[in-house]
Design a protein around this nucleic acid. Structure first.
Lengths: 206, 206
DNA sequence: CACTGGATTGACTAGTCAGTCAACCGCTGG
DNA sequence: CCAGCGGTTGACTGACTAGTCAATCCAGTG
């Protein structure tokens, strides 16, 4: 009531409705009218704010992806933090993004990041930028390994995306403890690896 | 001419054509007539052999996925081979599958494995089976780690799928050396981790 | 040769859905 | 009180395509 109580941002309303609908039925299996209905808005209004159905998805992706890129850059810029801790923070950011808005992350991963024949190809540069920023964090590390940072970044991001996929597909439990555990494990796996338990260091091999 | 030279298996012809068309344009962006044209066959014949467009994709996926599950089981059954070497062999099998038939693997990954809203959900059990078999290999290992085998399997498979995605998206070079290198790196990353170079073992931390 | 039945053809149907557009609504300023 | 205008409406169109089906072909058989 403070000011213009009914001045709802319809554009935002449509975007938020699209997140839910795209997550529920998939971009290809839903109709624009589903989005309009979900937003409680007339069909035509969708086209007042967006030139096409595809552009809704592009907007959702670019909006959120930029937030993530900025977050990674900000984490990387922190002083006196080890690369390992920075990677933990990146993992935490992405996993918390999923926890906070699972529908949006589902849409981004399923419909964009992994859609090689449609939106994935369109946003290749943006997606690649994430890899590069992660590789940058790993590069700053004083510890050098056999695994080049570019591959380590690929594996790191791949592992996180696979975790999210596990939650999306309901293969992993979506509990707070599991989210927290996953943050640790994904970094543990990349650093400690399977070679030995964390405290000790004895390497056994066949 | 030896025997029935013109007795081409049209069903197979259609499946192979579908692989190429689905890979090129994506399942949702291609028409059944594209598949028929690619196979050099009349439109209606596709429906003589398959009840629907979706069933063509299901057939392709199930065919190939079973081959992979069998291969993993066979690798796991080998005697006197360390878990690490078995994982290398699994990675090699999947990567060589991609090298041998990139179109088919692209279709399986892009249209099934990662398609949470359509075929992925349909084949969840089969996909999960792959995780479980990989986890089984890791479980047999005498070395125990902080990272539970179920997560290690997720990360391992996720890393491989991310590699394939890199090749599919043209983010990684598709050379023989790169394929071989990737096989080593994905296992190195899971075992050695980033903690130290392979020969030595000194662990440094911040 | 006549006949049978599976393989093959492609025009057609039935339905879907992205995107358009002409009209309407309600505010603001003259 | 009206004119102008951006926001809003939803019926409609145009294009597309999965799936059907009646007709045709042809290999094998008696």
């Amino acid at each position: 009531m403070a000011a213009k109580p009914n001045a709802v941002d319809k554009r935002r309303l449509i975007l938020d409705a699209a997140i839910r609908v795209f997550a529920r039925r998939g971009f290809h299996h839903c109709r624009v009218s589903d989005v309009a209905d979900e937003a409680g808005v007339a069909y035509g209004l969708v086209y007042h704010y967006f030139p096409s159905k595809e552009e809704i998805l592009n907007t959702l992706f670019l909006e959120r992806w930029q937030v993530m890129l900025d977050a990674i850059a900000e984490i990387d810029a922190r002083q006196g933090v080890s690369a390992r801790d920075k990677l933990y923070q990146v993992a935490a950011f992405i996993i918390d993004s999923y926890r906070h808005d699972p529908d949006l992350m589902k849409v981004i991963i399923v419909e964009v990041t992994r859609a090689a024949n449609s939106f994935g190809a369109l946003h290749l540069e943006k997606i690649r930028e994430a890899y590069e920023r992660i590789a940058g964090i790993i590069d700053d590390d004083s510890i050098k390994s056999d695994v080049p940072s570019e591959f380590a970044a690929l594996f790191f991001y791949g592992a996180i995306e696979q975790l999210l996929t596990g939650w999306i597909f309901d293969v992993l439990p979506r509990t707070d403890e599991e989210f927290e555990r996953a943050k640790d494990l994904v970094v543990d796996a990349l650093y400690g690896g399977l070679q030995a338990a964390r405290p000790g260091s004895a390497a056994v091999s066949g």
